[in-house]
Write a protein that binds this DNA or RNA. Structure first.
Lengths: 346, 346
DNA sequence: CTGTTAATGAGGCACGTGCCTCAAAGCAAG
DNA sequence: CTTGCTTTGAGGCACGTGCCTCATTAACAG
């Protein structure tokens, strides 16, 4: 590919000349207005290829006075991981200001699908260009997302997956994340046989199910001497968590590993600390937060499976913008990595 | 912070009104032209704060017909890791086209500091806005970087660090990367005592020294039963590599782990494969390439310490642009992560 | 042929900023 | 006071694109 000198970058004027039409017609083709013969459309497209025309989006945005207002619909409840996300949205605000992008957070009750649907249906194209939604999958929410999209507002599942949105969502492959936790757990434990405790907030959500699936698969296939216990569900209730964790420890004296599957790991990890379990038990949790970071450095935690909150936020914004601009987004950058964090690469 | 409605975003005109001056004076202040009283400058700056003015960079670039031409000065020699970098630069080309950024690759002979210095001194501000340099640190290169910066061309050490550039470079903390390799190695080996082979391309470069330092520290502090052998230097010579690796294997029958420290791991790993070593020996290498990715999936490699080449490239471009625009760059996004890759999160 | 409609061209203003010129005002020294 | 210098204002054109109006031409049916 021969690169043109910056100065000579073709404009719509050049394109018009190359296609043998007027700038008005070029405009009609580029912005998909009708009233242009198919012949002409093709001629212009060929000219675009021929001279390597690329629309100057900055000038276009300037002309349109276009700006993008995006909303992050996040759960009202949540602990440090949620705070990290919100912090990154704040950061992104100034980062994307030069692209005329404004972001706001709207808190939703993630366990009330009806209110989420109501909120989504209140969004108007003229006010909001797009919305990133972090909420567990339910039929109501799924339908609401589809409807808001039909009204011209870009909608993007965020961190929590939604089946319908096949490829178009922002987050990690939770099956692979669970598998990574399983593999790391198995390798760290080594030859020692025993049981692994698995702590989840709830096994209702798709994310949890997928993590568990991946985790079990790795343990079963690669580490025959280990057995993963049934998931303990805390329902985000600290008392309940304390009770069932203690009971499980008593019932399974051969525990050699603990996998905290929930995104908010502080509460379960604190309980484990209170219960004063042996440091030799391999502990793996999810997400980097001030608490988990500290535990990792203090060697109270052996590893962390994480997704970068800043990357999640920025990727969501870029993809929402791409949806609004009707561009395809670029794969490699928007792939959210499953990070493994040890105390040395925190 | 109260966000203004997109429509009402203040322009230089609003700023002029708010500061009680003309647009011409605002322009003089914003673009740091002289001939403005100190009083007036301060008044304008206060007004900027007061109304939350932020320059519309897109419009500014449009007005200036500004475009940015960046050059990646990369080694001529190199294998798959270098190819990955070049591939990402290609990707970035289209990604940043909308920001009027053009990138090109220029191959340098990384072992000839003089020719690098000559090349850098040939760069002209009017042709090239910035250059990312991947070359080992030498006094000549260091000085050349400083000189090219003084001539108004942004210069940024890339992947290979340069002492002078304290914070302003793009790449990972190699000490931490080595430490991560060490910790992972130790944890994966478990209780088994033995020796660890360390293979490097050369211990002349600062990057290698730092990795080795971090690796040794983790092994020595955390795993007393392991001993890391002296570094084997291949000098990128396959025959030499084959000889010294085979000799080391014979001399140390208790080898339980192998750490390939070089960025280009294909050649050493292929040699190990030919030598048919036991699969139980834990092998850790650097950088994700088609080859290492394949080996990881085939379970011939236990773990990979990597830096995302796409992220490296994009971060370099953003930072170069930030330097040209005289903006400060944003920390959290520009921090290059030390990734740990297993076959589950590849 | 004429009349009608579809397709295209010509031209201009707008967006927010940079950069230029020229005039006007302020200010200090003589 | 005048002279000369510094500081400020007023205005306009440019960048590339979107979007509008109005005129003109091509295509086609009757």
């Amino acid at each position: 590919m021969i690169l043109l000198e910056p100065m000579l970058r073709p404009t719509t004027k050049d394109l018009a000349k190359a296609a043998g039409v007027s700038r008005a017609t070029v405009d009609r083709v580029l912005n998909e207005r009708d009233g242009v013969k198919q012949d002409t459309v093709e001629r212009v497209h060929k000219a675009i290829e021929a001279i390597g025309f690329e629309r100057n989006i900055q000038a276009a945005n300037l002309a349109k006075s276009q700006s993008y207002r995006f909303i992050f619909a996040l759960p009202r409840s949540g602990d440090q991981f949620l705070q990290e996300i919100i912090k990154r949205i704040d950061e992104a605000r100034s980062l994307f200001a030069s692209d005329q992008i404004w972001c706001d957070v709207h808190q939703i009750d993630e366990n009330d699908p009806h209110s989420i649907a109501t909120y989504l249906s209140s969004l108007d194209k003229s006010q909001v260009a797009g919305v990133a939604i972090m909420a567990p999958e339910t039929p109501q929410v799924r339908d609401a997302i589809r409807r808001v999209q039909e009204r011209g507002v870009a909608a993007l599942p965020f961190i929590s997956n939604q089946t319908t949105m096949d490829a178009n969502w922002v987050g990690i492959d939770n099956r692979a994340a669970g598998a990574t936790a399983g593999l790391l757990m198995g390798q760290f434990i080594g030859q020692k046989p025993g049981a692994i405790m698995v702590i989840a907030e709830s096994m209702q959500s798709r994310d949890s199910l997928e993590r568990r699936l991946g985790f079990d698969q790795e343990i079963n296939e690669g580490f025959a001497q280990l057995r993963a216990l049934p998931s303990l569900e805390t329902y985000a209730n600290e008392d309940r968590a304390r009770t069932i964790i203690a009971a499980s420890l008593r019932a399974n004296p051969d525990i050699v590993g603990i996998y905290v599957m929930a995104s908010e790991a502080r509460s379960p990890l604190s309980i484990l600390k209170d219960l004063n379990i042996a440091q030799s038990i391999v502990k793996i949790a999810h997400e980097r937060t001030p608490f988990t970071e500290h535990e990792l450095k203090a060697k109270m935690l052996h590893g962390l499976i994480a997704q970068d909150p800043g990357h999640l936020v920025r990727s969501a914004i870029r993809r929402l913008k791409g949806m609004v601009d009707r561009r395809q987004t670029f794969g490699s950058q928007e792939q959210i990595r499953i990070e493994i964090l040890l105390r040395t690469n925190i």
